[in-house]
Design a protein around this nucleic acid. Structure first.
Lengths: 336, 336
DNA sequence: TTGATGGATGTAATCGATTGCAAATCTAGC
DNA sequence: GCTAGATTTGCAATCGATTACATCCATCAA
C-alpha cells in the first residue's frame, strides 16, 4: 500500500502539505489541495494509523470489557457503547472476560501499551493495572469508567441505576399484592450490584415487619441457577408465594421449574425479574420486571470517559439513571 | 509513562537488548536479562503498541462487523470469535453495523489504515473497500472472511451451515407430522442465507407435491415482524397449520400472536424456528428449531482468517458446519 | 522603493519500538 | 598463544505519519 511520501511525490508537494490537506484542508491553497486529493484518490491512500497513533500518542480506541457478551443485558449496553463511541470517532476494542479475573487483568494491560485511550469495564472488579492508573491520576480521573456496578471506594466514575431502590420497589409491588412469604434469588454477592439489591429488598421486608419471611437464595444469573433455586424453594414445607429474581434469566428458570411442578404463574407463584431484556415481554406469562435503560447506561459510560479524555472531568462522578417497574402478567394478588 | 530508552539507561544496556529481553529472552545472557527485567519492573514499562505496530506493520487486531450485537444469535458467534482471537493473541475490534451499509463501509476503511490485520463480517454485503482488497489479492486470499452467509461469487472464504438442507429438514419434519398447508416466514431475501433456506423449503414442498400449499411471507428477523406475518397468515380463509420461521425470534412473535388469537401451540398451530438461541428451549412451548453451532462458526472464521494471515490459505475455502433439527414441543401432528 | 504582514509551503525533528549487521567478547581446540 | 566459531551486545536505519519552525512570496501601505 502507498504511503504519504508517494502521495507527496505524485502531487509535487511535501509530506507536510499532504498531511495538512487531510487534516485541515482549509489552510491549503485550493489548487494544491485538489492536486493532493487527486493523488490520494489515484493511489488509494489512507494514512497509516500506527504511525499516526505513534506521533499523536493517541489510539482512537476505547477498550470495553464485558463479563459475557452472549448475555442480552450486556449486549445491549455494549450496543449503546459502540454507538456512542462510533459517533465520537472512537473504535471499540472488545474483551469478553467470561467473569474471569485473569482475563480482566490481561485486557487491562492493553492500557499500559497504549492500545486504547480508555477503559470501560462492566464487571465489578477493577483490574490491578487500572487501579494503578487511578491511583497515579488522583485526584484527577484516570480514563477508566464503570458501567452497572458502583462502589464509591473504587474512585472510578460509574453509570448505573439505583439498585437498592429498584429492589425496594419490586418488593413493594409484591407486598402490595398481599404477598408475605417472599423469596429473593440473588446474583453472586461479591458484586455491589447484588448487595445493593439485597439491601433494598431487605429494607422493604423489614418495613413490612416481614424480615423473617424473606427467604434468600443465591444464583449466578443463569437460567439454570434460577431453576435450581426454585426447586429448593418450592420444596420448602412453607414455600414462598412470590419470587423476586435479580435478573430476567433466573426468572425464566423459576417459571420453567414452577410449570414443571404443575404450578401456574402467577396464580400459584408470582415472579418478578430484573433488567427487562427484550424477551421478558414475550415470556409466558409476560414478565413483571425492573426495566433498566441499557443503551443509555452504555452511552453514559462513553460520555463520562470522553469527558475525562478531554481533560474536563475532575472528581469521580457517579451517574444514576432512572429505572422502571414494568408490571406485566407474572405477578398477581396472593391466593388470586 | 516510561519508554524503552529509560529502561535501557536504567539497566545499562542498549534499547536493542531491552527489546530482545522482551521478545526473545533466551538469546540474552541471564545476568543481563535479569537486570533488564528489574528495570522493566521498577519503571512499570510496557512496550508502546503504536510504535511496535508501525515497525512490524502488523496491528494484532481483527476487525469484526456484526449486523446487530443485541441479537443473541450474533452475540454467540461474536463470543466464539473473541475467544478464538484471544487465544491466538489477537484483539477484537468490534463494529455494530446495525444492518447499515454506510457503517459497513466505514468500518471496512479501517483495513486500509491498517487498524486491523483482517476483517470478519457477519452480514451479507462485502464492503467496497474489502472487495478491492479481495480483487487485489487474487488469486490468493485477502484477509477477509465471512460468517453465516455464503456466496461463492464473492470469492471470500466463509463458515456457515447448509441452510438449504436445514430448511429442507425443517419442512420434512412438518410434512412427516402430516402438515400440508405450511407457511414460511423468511428474512430479507437480499441475503443468500434467506434465499438458501427458501430454496430448501421450496424443494421439500415440491417433493411433497405441495408447492401451492407453501405460503411465503417475508420478515426481518425481529419478533415484531414474526407477529405481524402471523397476523396475516392466521387471517387467511385457509390458514396454515404450521409455520416455519427463519429465526427463533420471529417464531416467538408467531407464538405470541397465535396465543393472543386464542390458538394453542402446537395443537392448533405448529411452529418451527431457526438458530436455537438460548431461550428457545425455555419458551412455552419449548421451541422446535434448527440448531446452529454459533460458537463454532465464530471460531471457524477466526481459524480461516489466521490461516490467511499466516500466508497458508490458497483458494477461498467454504466451511460447512453441521446443524441439527431439535424437536421440542412446538410441533405436533396436524389436527393433533 | 521598502518593509511589514500574512498566507502557503517546505525542512526536519519526533513519536517508540524492532532488527540487520557489525563489533566485541568468550570458548574451545590445537 | 592463537584462531575459528559461537555468543552477546550495540549501532543506527527504519516504519509513516504530524507539526514547530523556517522560508518564500505576494500584497500593500507609507
Amino acid at each position: 500500500m502507498s504511503n504519504i511520501y508517494e502521495v507527496a511525490k505524485r502531487a509535487g508537494v511535501s509530506t507536510a502539505t499532504v498531511s495538512r490537506v487531510l487534516s485541515r484542508p482549509n489552510i491549503v491553497a485550493p489548487g494544491t489541495r485538489r492536486r493532493v486529493l487527486q493523488a490520494v484518490e489515484r493511489l488509494g491512500y489512507a494514512p497509516n494509523s500506527a504511525a499516526k497513533n505513534l506521533r499523536t500518542l493517541r489510539s482512537g480506541k476505547l477498550l470495553v470489557t464485558v463479563p459475557d457478551i452472549s448475555n442480552p443485558f450486556f449486549s445491549l449496553i455494549l450496543q449503546g457503547i459502540e454507538e456512542a463511541a462510533h459517533r465520537a470517532g472512537y473504535a471499540v476494542l472488545l474483551g469478553d472476560t467470561q467473569h474471569n479475573e485473569k482475563r480482566e487483568e490481561r485486557y487491562a494491560l492493553m492500557l499500559n501499551r497504549k492500545e486504547a485511550d480508555g477503559l470501560i469495564f462492566l464487571g465489578h472488579r477493577l483490574p490491578k493495572e487500572a487501579a494503578t492508573l487511578v491511583r497515579a491520576a488522583a485526584p484527577r480521573c484516570a480514563p477508566v469508567v464503570n458501567g452497572c456496578e458502583f462502589s464509591p471506594r473504587l474512585g472510578v466514575p460509574s453509570v448505573h441505576i439505583d439498585n437498592a431502590r429498584a429492589a425496594y420497589e419490586a418488593l413493594d409491588h409484591l407486598f402490595g399484592l398481599g404477598h408475605r412469604r417472599i423469596a429473593a434469588i440473588t446474583g453472586p454477592l461479591v458484586s455491589p450490584l447484588s448487595r445493593d439489591r439485597l439491601r433494598g429488598a431487605t429494607a422493604r421486608a423489614k418495613a413490612a415487619g416481614a424480615t423473617h419471611d424473606l427467604i434468600v437464595r443465591h444464583g449466578d444469573f443463569s437460567i439454570e441457577s434460577g431453576g435450581a433455586a426454585a426447586e429448593q424453594l418450592l420444596s420448602l414445607k412453607n414455600p414462598p408465594t412470590a419470587v423476586f429474581c435479580f435478573n430476567d434469566e433466573m426468572a425464566m428458570g423459576v417459571i420453567e421449574t414452577a410449570r414443571s411442578r404443575g404450578l401456574r404463574v402467577p396464580r400459584d407463584l408470582s415472579v418478578v425479574g430484573f433488567d427487562d431484556i427484550r424477551f421478558a415481554r414475550y415470556m409466558d406469562p409476560p414478565l413483571t420486571t425492573i426495566a433498566q435503560p441499557m443503551r443509555e447506561i452504555g452511552e453514559g459510560t462513553v460520555r463520562l470517559l470522553l469527558e475525562i479524555l478531554r481533560g474536563n472531568a475532575i472528581a469521580p462522578v457517579s451517574v444514576t439513571l432512572p429505572h422502571t417497574l414494568v408490571i406485566r402478567a407474572s405477578t398477581s394478588p396472593v391466593n388470586g
